[in-house]
């Protein structure tokens, strides 16, 4: 019973991790940009739901999903245009710069919304949960899981079937060849950043369902999100999915088995990822082809 319970909790932690990391599979995985402000895009998504609350009332979470996607996406687009594009190929500079941006955005949130946490009310239909033979799964956790799965399906479809997705993959695989094939690569970079940042906004909305919203909401997830992308293999959606759920379940079990849970679980998860990367530095999945091998 206990194990099953932890498995469910783990899956729900995994879904949150996955949502936080999905956007990074675009900006970090595909473009190689270490954007430390990604966490603040998550935070911006969460505050979007809070801002919409007076208008949309109990349905703020639903209404916020598309709005947060656009808000966070635009923030990402501005960041890419104004700063990041000047530092392509210089990961360390990008890391420091975007870290600075993340601090500025946190302070901005404090100035606008105040330092104390705020709360977004969940819609009525998300209170309660299902009982599975003594095991209770809250609806809001199921909603997050469904949202994460929906995002993964949507992204796969976008990358495989849409003109824009195909173009994005082409640019990431061979930028120069894409340019000489007539692709406007800068436009593709902008779109990639918009979509990746927009996904962070969705993650932020989801997070309002499981906790309060504060200026540092995103920074709590940023490291784990990067871990998921690195462990999964850069830019590999399938790898990110497996890594997120593995880390989620691992987290929940370690927390369950040890006395002072949370922080120890973090240490164990870190150790496991670092150990794993010693054995497989390229992550779970890699781009494989004759051209690269």
């Amino acid at each position: 019973m206990g194990a099953l319970n932890q498995l469910v909790i783990g899956a729900s932690i995994g879904a949150v991790l996955l949502l936080a990391a999905l956007g990074l599979t675009f900006t970090f995985g595909q473009m190689g940009v270490i954007n430390m402000a990604h966490g603040e895009f998550i935070m911006a998504g969460a505050y979007t739901a809070y801002v919409l609350q007076p208008l949309a009332g109990g349905q703020a979470v639903l209404a916020a999903l598309p709005v947060a996607f656009v808000v966070a996406g635009l923030l990402g687009l501005v960041l890419e245009r104004v700063l990041i594009r000047r530092f392509y190929g210089r990961p360390l500079d990008t890391l420091l710069l975007t870290f600075g941006v993340s601090l500025i955005l946190q302070q901005l949130a404090r100035d606008i919304f105040g330092a104390p946490n705020v709360q977004v009310r969940a819609p009525g239909w998300l209170t309660g949960g299902v009982d599975l033979g003594g095991l209770r799964i809250p609806y809001n956790r199921i909603f997050i899981l469904v949202l994460a799965v929906g995002c993964v399906v949507g992204i796969s479809w976008y990358l495989a079937r849409l003109k824009q997705g195909r173009r994005m993959r082409a640019v990431m695989q061979n930028r120069q060849l894409a340019a000489v094939s007539g692709v406007a690569t800068e436009r593709v970079d902008q779109l990639t950043f918009f979509v990746g940042s927009g996904l962070a906004g969705l993650a932020g909305v989801a997070l309002t369902l499981i906790g309060p919203v504060g200026p540092t909401l995103g920074s709590a997830y940023i490291v784990d999100a990067f871990l998921v992308v690195v462990a999964g293999g850069l830019g590999q959606l399938r790898g990110a999915v497996i890594a997120a759920f593995t880390l989620g379940v691992l987290n929940s079990f370690v927390e369950f088995w040890t006395a002072n849970g949370a922080s120890f679980a973090k240490v164990v998860v870190f150790a496991v990822v670092i150990g794993f990367l010693q054995v497989r530095p390229q992550g779970m999945f890699v781009l494989r082809s004759r051209a690269l091998s």
Binding site: R166, R167, Q173, N174, L177, V183, L292
Partner: peptide, 26 residues
């Protein structure tokens, strides 16, 4: 039109997608 040295392609895209990307861009 330009065909760079070294038979370059988009390795993870199918042959059909390689052609599609270029045609859609023109």
């Amino acid at each position: 039109g330009y065909v760079p040295q070294g038979h370059e392609t988009f390795p993870q895209l199918t042959v059909a997608e390689n052609l599609q990307v270029a045609r859609e861009a023109a």
